[in-house]
Every structure is written in C-alpha cells, then in structure tokens.
C-alpha cells in the first residue's frame, strides 16, 4: 500500500494518507468542510450531515468516508451549500435556541455556522418544543433546549472519560440525550473534570457559574468565522 493517495477537492489535487477521512485530509490541506458532530478527539459517526460532500457523484459524510486514490470530491457547490444551510436551519427550529441570552453566544459552533452561512432568520417554522433544564449536578448544567443531538457528549463520556454518562434515547422528534442516573445528571458519576463537560458545540452542556465571564469581542467567533483556523493552514 502506498504512503499517499491523491484526491481532488473542488478541482484541487490533495495529497492524503491512506486511512484518513476526507474531512481529515481536507483539514490538513487547509480546506474547510463545515461540520458540527465531528470532533478531532472523538470517533466520527456521520450524524449531523453538515459535512456532506459529493464523492464521485454521490453525497457522503466527509467525516466518516475514507480517502481513496483518485477520488473526486465536491465541497462547495451551490447545491451543497444550500443543503447545509437547510440542515442548520432545521437545528435552530427544532430546539429553543435563544442566542440573545445564551451564555454560549460567541463561542457556539451552531451560531457560528449560521453566521458563516449567512443565515439571519430561519426559513422553517419554529417548533418551540417543550424541553427540560437539568440543573441537578453541582457543577454542570444540562439545558435540553439547546441540544442538537450531535452525541459528542455520549462519545466523550465513553471514549475519553471511560464512563457512560450520556446516551441517545427515543426516536424521531422525541429523540433526546438521556443520562445514566436515577433521575437526573446529579445522580450520575459525571465529574467536573470529565472531558464530556467541555465537548458540547452548543450551550446544552455548560459549566455552571462561569457564563458571560468572557467579554464580547474576546469570544471565539467574535472576529473570525468558524473554520478560519483551518483555512489559515492553506494561507
């Protein structure tokens, strides 16, 4: 097996290592493929579909699809961009995402993605679902209103913390993150030092009592769009 393969992304030739996913190869080459459920420390599951690209004519999730020599990948066609916008849009209306008073504002990957895509208002009707706030843990707040079902917390607890604090439960619209306790997060073995406490892309799992400590202007996405760190590799 050769040490490297060549693929093309939007017409550009990229050297990649066998075993890499399209997403990893693109990152290394300074090409940003938008993603939400994917995280470099976690195994990919292709859940959110924001990283969908067209591989040899077929839509595929870039975070799980391994590279193969000669692969032709399209990442930024108008059609793909519109699909991604629609997915992000649906995430907003399926939850209760009130950016205006959310402590994750400015550091939120969902919000940053919407800004990157130029979404100023949702095109779909708000669902305003009834969601719970689980404040039972002394150090961690779990606000289901803001969950996008990326399952990063589920994977982080298992893969990084060696625990099993979170699970996806239910089906369809009723699907949600459950906790492995009698009633609530406070009954689990979740600890403030767990990696799962800091892995949430949105404001669903946050550390208590530290919200808003970072002033506006110094937050992660205040001055640079999401993905610009990856694109800088290329520049």
């Amino acid at each position: 097996m050769s040490d490297s393969v060549t693929i093309t992304i939007d017409g550009r030739n990229i050297e990649a290592r066998p075993g890499q996913t399209i997403l990893e190869a693109a990152d290394a080459a300074g090409i940003y493929i938008p993603r939400l459920c994917s995280h470099p420390d976690l195994k990919p599951i292709g859940s959110c579909r924001v990283c969908t690209v067209v591989v040899d004519g077929r839509p595929q999730a870039a975070c799980v699809k391994p590279v193969m020599d000669g692969m032709v990948v399209q990442n930024s066609t108008p059609e793909l961009l519109q699909h991604r916008r629609n997915i992000v849009d649906m995430m907003f209306v399926e939850g209760n995402h009130f950016c205006m008073f959310c402590e994750k504002s400015g550091n939120c990957e969902l919000q940053a993605m919407a800004y990157r895509f130029g979404i100023t208002a949702p095109q779909y009707p708000f669902q305003f679902p009834e969601k719970e706030v689980d404040a039972s843990h002394p150090d961690i707040l779990l606000d289901h209103n803001r969950c996008i079902m990326c399952a990063r917390c589920v994977r982080a607890s298992q893969e990084l913390d060696g625990k099993n604090v979170f699970q996806s439960i239910g089906r369809g619209f009723a699907r949600k993150i459950g906790v492995n306790g009698e009633r609530a997060l406070g009954d689990t073995d979740m600890a403030a030092t767990d990696k799962a406490a800091d892995i949430c892309p949105v404001g669903c799992i946050v550390r208590k009592r530290v919200g808003f400590e970072k002033p506006i202007g110094q937050r992660l996405y205040d001055t640079r769009p999401i993905g610009s760190d990856i694109e800088e590799v290329r520049a």
Partner: peptide, 14 residues
Amino acid sequence: QGRPYWEIPVLVQR
C-alpha cells in the same frame, strides 16, 4: 423561572 441565575442579567435586560 427555572433559568440559571448567572443568565438573568443578560436575559432580563431584554
């Protein structure tokens, strides 16, 4: 009611 207290100064100014 039900919101965490550190959120209130930002929320209620709305």
